[in-house]
Design a protein around this nucleic acid. Structure first.
Length: 490
RNA sequence: GAGCCCGUAGCUCAGCCGGUAGAGCAACUGACUUUUAAUCAGUAGGUCUCGGGUUCGAAUCCCGGCGGGCUCACCA
């Protein structure tokens, strides 16, 4: 006896025993089906109520409802629902003895002729009934379904069976990623896969997961970003346009917008700067929205957002000045920047640089007001160690982040290609690390060596797929858009 | 990691100013046999998340653990 199921489980086990006794395999190997529910509905759209056809089909799916003591079954396959009619006019005695051993939740195959009942339901008159998988556990209640958020995440298979909306969300997610891949491929971007296991975790500021390789006796880190490897490929000239859509791992807290593993699109293109990345961001997100929703006007949590490009471009300093009256570009030193940021409500630790102080104030006072899509430019250089300096103001980087609904959706820059400058930036990061900044980026000597062979000028772009899907599917939690989100084991 | 809230039958939920548990669906038995959350009658099903405490008596009050949700912090 399995835990907890008690009588319901025992009853179904007994039915399985009786099936064995009748020589019926409750878990056969295959079933030759000839139609899906949706295909039948499409084919017989015009079939009037009460009409019968001579078309013989074989359908298969999960029994989701039984009415009139099993005379009517609702069979659900991945495409939709088809009703099955079990009547002694069509189904033989062996079919009826099997029917008595079927339960809601079982997977069954049905062969028979198609008709539309007088009440208008497309139906297969069962001539043969085949059990394809006996369910030993009962499904959740048919009307309210599975509502418990924890169970929906832990037992996603049940969530998918019971909740149409959840299914739709993941189908949308697949369409979003598919649309991006297709568009990128059609524009000549090459998809690549780079390592998940990194000896040095680089390409972002984040705490990594550590693991260990036994044969090499080597600690390895689950990647926090693919960035440095992708740019190595640009050095190698594998393609002038390449991207990766894959997982990143960050060892940080969980929240409705953070899962320890998440999916990003990272893209690099030679011979362009970050201006090109803005246009690309707009195109990709509109492609994604149209794939998921068929429109570029979305509603998230009751807020309507129009994704139609072009999106405004505003600098961080400008937005901070508007919101707080503080002009960071007029502040020279770190201390003054910290005092100004704290005076306006940013929470600091006291060792922030000028750029970190401005960003903290931006996060505190500006970010969550950026509801409509906007590219925020003019990120401080000292928090952008992989970006080229702004060609007009060396305190800034040629970097932007795209915000929608107050969330960072994209992050892009004119990539730093000067190996000596890059080495200096790494050394600055190492100093910050030594001062206690755990997320400062470690020096990757091989990456600098790659730059020494010559990285063409290039733009790079990262888009957070999970959050984008949240926006497009109106999902309140990142766990609603990740099939198996990270949970404490129970 | 901190604060607030939640955990009752397989599922969805009542009960919670203390008197050892209810409904609907699912299940079982039967009726019905062209239904649509089918219907009708009946039956069975619970260490009330776990452990302590208070009390004559705890699902209910208190403390702690476990799991979850939200908010905050870190981040995308």
């Amino acid at each position: 006896m399995k835990e907890g199921e008690g009588e319901l489980y025992a009853v179904r086990l007994e039915k399985r025993r009786r099936l064995d006794a009748l020589g019926i395999d409750p878990y056969p190997y295959a079933f030759s089906r000839t139609a899906t529910a949706a295909a039948l509905e499409a084919r017989h759209e015009a079939l009037p109520a009460g009409a019968e056809t001579s078309e013989e089909v074989a359908v298969a799916g999960r029994i989701r409802a039984m009415r009139n003591s099993g005379m009517f079954l609702d069979l659900h396959d991945a495409s939709g629902k088809i009703q099955v009619f079990c009547h002694k006019d069509f189904l033989g005695p062996e079919g009826f003895s099997l029917l008595r051993l079927l339960d809601i939740g079982d997977i069954a195959g049905v062969k028979g002729r198609v008709r539309r009942t007088p009440r208008g339901e497309l139906t297969v008159n069962a001539q043969e009934l085949t059990l394809l998988a006996k369910a030993l556990r009962p499904l959740p209640e048919k009307f309210h379904g599975l509502a418990d958020i924890e169970l929906r995440h832990r037992q996603r298979y049940l969530d998918l069976i019971m909740n149409r909306g959840s299914r739709d969300t993941f189908l949308s997610r697949s369409r979003v990623v598919g649309a991006m891949r297709r568009w990128l491929a059609s524009e000549g971007y090459l998809e690549v896969e780079t390592p998940m296991l990194h000896p040095i975790p680089g390409g972002a500021s984040a705490k990594p997961f550590v693991t260990h390789h036994n044969a090499l006796d080597l600690d390895l880190y689950l990647r926090i970003a693919p960035e440095l490897h992708l740019k190595r490929l640009l050095v190698g000239g594998l393609s002038d346009r390449l991207f990766e859509i894959n997982r990143c791992f960050r060892n940080e807290g969980l929240s409705p917008r953070h899962n320890p593993e998440f999916t990003s699109l990272e893209l690099y293109e030679a011979y362009v700067d970050y201006g090109a990345m803005m246009a690309l961001t707009e195109t990709l997100i509109v492609e994604a929205a149209e794939a998921a929703l068929g429109t570029r006007r979305i509603t998230y949590g009751g807020t309507e957002i129009d994704l139609s490009p072009p999106w405004p471009r505003r600098s961080m300093a400008e937005l901070v000045l508007e919101a707080t009256g503080v002009d960071f570009l007029a502040l020279a030193d770190d201390g003054g920047a910290r005092r100004a940021a704290e005076a306006e409500g940013a929470q600091l630790e006291g060792r922030e640089s000028w750029g970190q102080a401005m960003e903290a104030l931006f996060a505190a006072r500006v970010e969550d007001r950026l509801i409509a899509p906007i590219h925020v430019t003019g990120f401080p250089r000292d928090i952008s160690p992989l970006a080229k300096a702004d060609r007009r103001d060396k305190r800034l980087a040629e970097r932007f982040e795209t915000f929608i609904y107050g969330w960072e959706i994209a992050n892009a820059f004119s990539e730093l290609t000067d190996p000596l400058d890059q080495n200096e930036r790494f050394l600055d990061q190492m100093r910050a690390r030594a001062m206690g900044d755990e997320e400062a980026q470690p020096l990757d000597e091989d990456y600098v060596r790659a730059l020494e062979y010559g990285l063409p000028p290039c733009g790079g772009l990262g888009i957070g797929i999970d959050r984008l899907v949240m926006l497009l599917t109106d999902s309140p939690s990142i766990r609603d858009v990740i099939l198996f989100p990270t949970l404490r084991p129970r």
